[in-house]
C-alpha cells in the first residue's frame, strides 16, 4: 500500500442531506496525512456536517460524491469501522453518557479498535494523557462528559485522540469555549500528535487557534461547498475583511451562505 492516495482523506464532490434537505452541495477537499488543514467559514456553512458525514453519522445521508480514506471509499461503513481505519472526529459538543466512566469508555474504545492494553499500562496511559491536558485525575472515574464544562469536554476529546492515535483527525471547533490557557494546552496536545505524522483538519470560526497550530492549507466553506483555498494568507484575509468579499466572489449572498445548513 504505497501508491499515492494512501493515508490521504479525499472528499470528492460530496453531497449530503439531512432529512431530505441538502446541506453539502459538492464538497471537494483533500487532506494528506502529515498535514494540518484549516476549514473556516461563516456559521451554518456546513463545516460540522462535513465532519459528521466523514465519520458516518446516520443522520447525515450522502446523496452524491465520495469520501475516500487511504485509497478506499468509507461510504456505507459504520462509524466504528471508520474509527478503526484511523479516522477521528472531535465533536463540537461532545456527548455525555451518564453512568459510563471515562476509564470504561476509553477501555471499550481501545478494545473496539483492537488496541487493548494490559490493565496497568492502560491506566498509566490515560493517567499521563489526562495530566498532559492539565485535567484532574478524578476525570477518569467521572461519567464521560457528564457535567463537564465546555472546556473540559474539549480537552477530553484531545485526551481521547492522544490515546486512540488516529491517522486523520477532524477537530470541530475544538477551540470554541476555551480560554487562552486552555487553548494553548489543547494546541500543545494537537502539536504533539501532529509530530507523529497525523493528518488534521481543524474546523474553526476564528483564527485564534491557528496562532498556535500553523496550518499547511486553509479552506473556506460557504453554502455547503468550498469557495476558496490557499495558504495562511487566507486567514489574514478573513481576519482583515471577513468572509463577505470571498462570498461575493463566489456569487453567494451573505444570507444564503448560511441558509443551506442546519
Amino acid at each position: 500500500m504505497s501508491e499515492a492516495g494512501v493515508s490521504t482523506l479525499e472528499i470528492r464532490d460530496l453531497r449530503v442531506a439531512v432529512e431530505g434537505k441538502e446541506i453539502l452541495s459538492g464538497v471537494d477537499l483533500t487532506v494528506p496525512k502529515g498535514e494540518v488543514h484549516a476549514l473556516m467559514g461563516p456559521n451554518g456553512a456546513g463545516k460540522t456536517s462535513l465532519g459528521y458525514a466523514v465519520m458516518g453519522h446516520p443522520k447525515y445521508q450522502v446523496t452524491g460524491g465520495d469520501i475516500i480514506w487511504a485509497g478506499q471509499s468509507v461510504l456505507g461503513k459504520p462509524p466504528e469501522e471508520r474509527s478503526r481505519l484511523g479516522l477521528f472526529l472531535s465533536l463540537q459538543y461532545p456527548t455525555a453518557i451518564p453512568g459510563v466512566t471515562t476509564t470504561n469508555f476509553l477501555r471499550a474504545a481501545l478494545k473496539g479498535q483492537g488496541k487493548e492494553l494490559p490493565a496497568r499500562e492502560f491506566l498509566k496511559l490515560i493517567r499521563s494523557e489526562v495530566a498532559a491536558l492539565k485535567m484532574d485525575q478524578s476525570f477518569m472515574s467521572r461519567y464521560i462528559n457528564d457535567n463537564f464544562s465546555g472546556g473540559e469536554k474539549k480537552r477530553m476529546e484531545i485526551v481521547q485522540m492522544a490515546i486512540l492515535k488516529p491517522e486523520m483527525a477532524i477537530l470541530d471547533e475544538t477551540d470554541s469555549g476555551l480560554d487562552v490557557d486552555a487553548l494553548r494546552t489543547v494546541a500543545d496536545g494537537v502539536n504533539r500528535v501532529r509530530g507523529d505524522g497525523m493528518g488534521i483538519l481543524i474546523i474553526t470560526h476564528y483564527q485564534r487557534i491557528l496562532d498556535y497550530i500553523t496550518p499547511d492549507r486553509v479552506h473556506v466553506m460557504a453554502a455547503g461547498r468550498i469557495i476558496a483555498s490557499g495558504g495562511s494568507e487566507v486567514v489574514a484575509q478573513i481576519e482583515e475583511s471577513g468572509y463577505d468579499p470571498m462570498l461575493r466572489q463566489a456569487g453567494i449572498e451573505a444570507e444564503a451562505a448560511a441558509s443551506a445548513a442546519v
Binding site: P79, E80, S83, T95, G99, A109, K111
Partner: peptide
C-alpha cells in the same frame, strides 16, 4: 450516545451495552 461510542471504535452492540450498563449505574 451510540454515534459517540461508535465514532471511537466501539461496535454497535458493545455501544448499546455500554449505554444500558451506564443507565443502571446509579
Amino acid at each position: 450516545q451510540l454515534f459517540y461510542c461508535e465514532s471511537r471504535g466501539v461496535n454497535r452492540e458493545q455501544a448499546r451495552r455500554l449505554v444500558v450498563e451506564g443507565f443502571f449505574a446509579d
